[in-house]
């Protein structure tokens, strides 16, 4: 068992990060995927995660939203989400605590994962009505505003099966936003899309960056897009952050050899 006393019960101070990974290790069975990860994300910051396949990019997001970790603590807004307080110490969170603690986080997936038996509007209203307990009317209003934001208001009564990939992904973004998250996670949200519709999704994300004070963590293979909109880019290699920095620095003047190799390999593939 790990000695938990080295982790504070709560992060305090003037500049508490919105998301904070402290010494986090994630393993699937005997396979350690991420090791001793330390990563802080400021409120309102847009951080892109890049790296070769299997380097643990998706796992970083999934630890925030879907997976349990083997070591370390993750804090959101200063509060631990992976652990809860008991007798003045931290113990692994139970399911209920974990779910509640993750409420300020929203996630969008590579394959959209819209609910097929609900229309676009119903997809967006589901969380506000069923989880936040909002009235149908208020939830509808909020959802329609968000569908407007992502440019899908004219398709609000369509089921996902009638929407293109780009349209589905925009609805999925609206659905996540309807929960009013503080943190948004995007896992390769354009990878399953045809090239000609990628722009409609990236434009929505650009709009979010420009107009909303969301903290975002985005895994992407689109280097140009990451360079455009990120405050910081993290290059993952073998379950560790090999190099990170502002996009201009990381893309134009990478310091580490592995970063250089990866970037030139990506460039020549384009």
């Amino acid at each position: 068992m790990e000695d938990m006393s080295r982790y504070p019960l709560q992060l305090e101070g003037a500049d508490v990060p919105m998301v904070s990974f402290k010494n986090v290790t994630k393993a699937y069975g005997s396979l350690t995927v991420l090791e001793n990860l330390d990563l802080d994300i400021r409120e309102g910051e847009m951080v892109s995660v890049i790296g070769p396949s299997g380097s643990g990019k998706t796992t970083v997001l999934r630890m925030l939203m879907l997976e349990r970790i083997q070591q370390g603590v993750i804090y959101v807004n200063g509060k631990p989400i992976t652990h809860m307080e008991k007798n003045g110490g931290l113990v692994p969170a139970d399911d209920k605590y974990l779910r509640k603690a993750r409420e300020p986080i929203g996630m969008c997936f590579q394959h959209f994962n819209l609910f097929p038996h609900m229309t676009a509007l119903q997809n967006c209203m589901e969380g506000p009505v069923q989880v936040l307990g909002m009235s149908k009317r208020a939830a509808r209003e909020r959802s329609e505003d968000l569908l407007e934001l992502v440019g899908m208001i004219d398709k609000k009564d369509q089921h996902p099966s009638r929407l293109s990939g780009g349209q589905q992904q925009r609805v999925a973004i609206a659905r996540a936003l309807a929960m009013r998250p503080k943190v948004m996670l995007f896992d390769e949200v354009t990878s399953a899309l045809d090239p000609e519709v990628i722009g409609e999704v990236t434009n929505v994300i650009k709009k979010l960056v420009a107009e909303h004070n969301l903290t975002m963590l985005m895994v992407t293979h689109q280097m140009g897009f990451a360079k455009d909109i990120s405050d910081r880019v993290c290059f993952f290699f073998g379950g560790k952050i090999e190099e990170q920095g502002p996009p201009e620095q990381l893309f134009d003047h990478p310091q580490k050899e592995r970063t250089q190799q990866f970037l030139s390999a990506v460039k020549s593939a384009d």
Binding site: M65, L66, R99, R102, L114, E126, Q130, A172, A176, M179
Partner: peptide, 21 residues
């Protein structure tokens, strides 16, 4: 598909609501 569970979970739906709805 797993993704449906994950999407429902990411909206913080309770286990019962995930199942029923």
């Amino acid at each position: 598909p797993r993704g449906q569970w994950e999407a429902a979970y990411s909206l913080s739906m309770s286990p019962a609501k995930r199942m029923w709805r």
